[in-house]
């Protein structure tokens, strides 16, 4: 650009000089010669600029772009890492939604058999994305409210289910296993049916479905 800038400056000077010479010289046969000389000067200036352009190291202007080629913007790794982080957050959100959806579906299926008195369902999903089992149902826990069953059996109008404090891992937990609780034999049959039905529906082994009892 410097060469072209110099050329334009030279041309401006030549033309202004030519115009003033044209005015100041006496009228006569000199004027065409002035025009020719000035024209030749312009041609020389242009040719000089062209030869300068040809001799110029064309890569001289490139380093700026070359230097910036790796430079502009953050590196790709940084962008990909940030994007993958967002992707992971999305996956976790999707997994949670999926888990909630499946839990609701399991509960609905369990309630198809009202005698079993299943009041809650909790689904555990395999969340290790590297493993092949990612996204599969790992375990289902059904919660059965024994008091609701007893109330109905005894013909009472039945109070609504009271919220239960769940203290997992503590002694004296509200949750109890089948072996520890006295369960009416007809309820055991119903619960077993529900358990098998749900395990079959989701293509799980019966071990993957467990039952918890509340209000024994």
């Amino acid at each position: 650009m410097e060469i072209i800038k110099n050329l334009v400056q030279t041309l401006i000077i030549i033309v202004i000089l030519a115009v003033f010479l044209d005015m100041l010289l006496p009228t006569g046969q000199m004027k065409p010669y002035v025009k020719m000389v000035m024209g030749l000067l312009i041609i020389i200036a242009v040719l000089q600029a062209i030869s300068g352009l040809l001799q110029q190291d064309w890569l001289q202007g490139v380093p700026r772009v070359k230097a910036q080629a790796g430079g502009p913007g953050p590196p790709l790794e940084e962008i990909v890492t940030a994007g993958k982080q967002l992707q992971l957050e999305n996956q976790n959100k999707a997994l949670e939604k999926y888990r909630q959806g499946i839990s609701a579906q399991v509960l609905s299926l369990a309630k198809l058999s009202p005698e079993a008195k299943v009041v809650d369902a909790d689904v555990k999903i395999s969340d290790e994305s590297e493993k092949e089992s990612y996204g599969r149902i790992a375990h289902i826990t059904l919660t059965v409210d024994l008091s609701a069953g007893q109330a109905e059996n005894s013909g009472e109008t039945g109070d609504p289910i009271q919220p239960v404090q769940i203290n997992v891992g503590e002694s004296g937990s509200s949750f109890k296993n089948t072996q520890e609780v006295d369960i009416p034999p007809e309820l055991i049959g119903e619960i077993k049916k529900v358990k098998e039905y749900i395990a079959g529906f989701y293509n799980l082994s019966p071990d993957q479905v467990s039952i918890n009892y509340i209000n024994p």
């Binding site: 967002l86 999305n90 996956q91 959100k93 999707a94 997994l95 939604k97 999926y98 959806g101 499946i102 579906q105 092949e132 996204g135 599969r136 149902i137 529906f201 989701y202 293509n203």
Partner: peptide
Amino acid sequence: AFIPVVGGVFSEALEAVVGSS
């Protein structure tokens, strides 16, 4: 294909979240 029965639900949930992105 590989998540039995509910695989579709998972991919749909993922798509819904990706939609917000």
